[in-house]
Simulated scan of single mutants.
Amino acid sequence: MASLLADAPALLTRQVPEDPLTALRAAGIEPVPWSGWLAIERAEAALGARLGRSVVKLADWDALLTAARSA
């Protein structure tokens, strides 16, 4: 919390893009659409079921992105 408060004055004067999706894409980042998030949830539930548990979170970016792209 102290770190956030220390950064607050600089953050208040920072320019924020009007459309964050456009800014992300301009930076070479492709956001995961809602269908991708739902696919991640399904993959985590399936992993948990295979392990005899409830949901098991995917632990690395590659697994998350692979699941998201399966949508």
Rank of each mutant, 00 (worst) to 15 (best):
W61P: 02
R14P: 04
E41G: 10
L51F: 04
R50D: 12
L24E: 12
L11M: 14
A27M: 10
P31V: 05
P17S: 06
A2T: 13
D62K: 13
A39M: 01
R53Y: 07
L65Y: 04
S35K: 00
L11K: 12
D60K: 11
L24W: 15
P20S: 06
S54P: 08
A46Q: 13
W61Y: 09
D62I: 11
G52S: 12
E41M: 11
R50K: 14
A26N: 13
A27N: 12
S70W: 03
W61E: 13
P20N: 07
E18W: 01
V16M: 09
L58R: 01
L58M: 07
T22F: 08
R53T: 14
T22Q: 15
A2G: 07
G36Y: 01
A2N: 07
R69G: 04
D60T: 15
E41A: 15
S3E: 11
D7I: 06
V32Q: 03
R50H: 10
A71M: 01
S3I: 10
I29S: 08
G36P: 05
A71S: 12
P17T: 10
L51I: 00
A46R: 14
D7S: 14
K57N: 08
R25D: 04
I40Y: 02
L58I: 06
A71Q: 02
R42C: 02
L12C: 12
A39Q: 00
T66V: 13
E30V: 09
R69C: 01
S54T: 14
M1T: 11
D60P: 04
G28H: 06
P33Y: 01
A63C: 09
P33R: 00
A63V: 05
I29T: 10
G36E: 00
D62C: 05
D7Y: 03
L4T: 10
A59D: 15
G28M: 05
A68M: 09
D62L: 05
V16S: 06
T13L: 11
A23S: 13
V16D: 04
K57G: 06
R50Q: 15
G48K: 03
E18A: 15
E41C: 10
R53C: 07
G28T: 08
L51G: 02
K57T: 14
A8D: 07
R50W: 01
L11S: 08
P20R: 10
A63T: 12
A8H: 11
A63S: 15
W61C: 03
Q15R: 12
A45P: 02
V16H: 06
T66A: 15
A43P: 05
L64Y: 06
G48E: 04
P9H: 04
G48I: 06
A59T: 15
L12Y: 11
R25W: 06
L5F: 11
V56F: 00
I29C: 08
A49K: 15
S3G: 04
A59C: 08
L51D: 12
R14M: 13
A71D: 00
P9Q: 09
P17N: 08
I40V: 15
I40S: 00
A43F: 09
Q15H: 11
W34F: 04
A39K: 03
S35R: 00
G48T: 03
A6F: 00
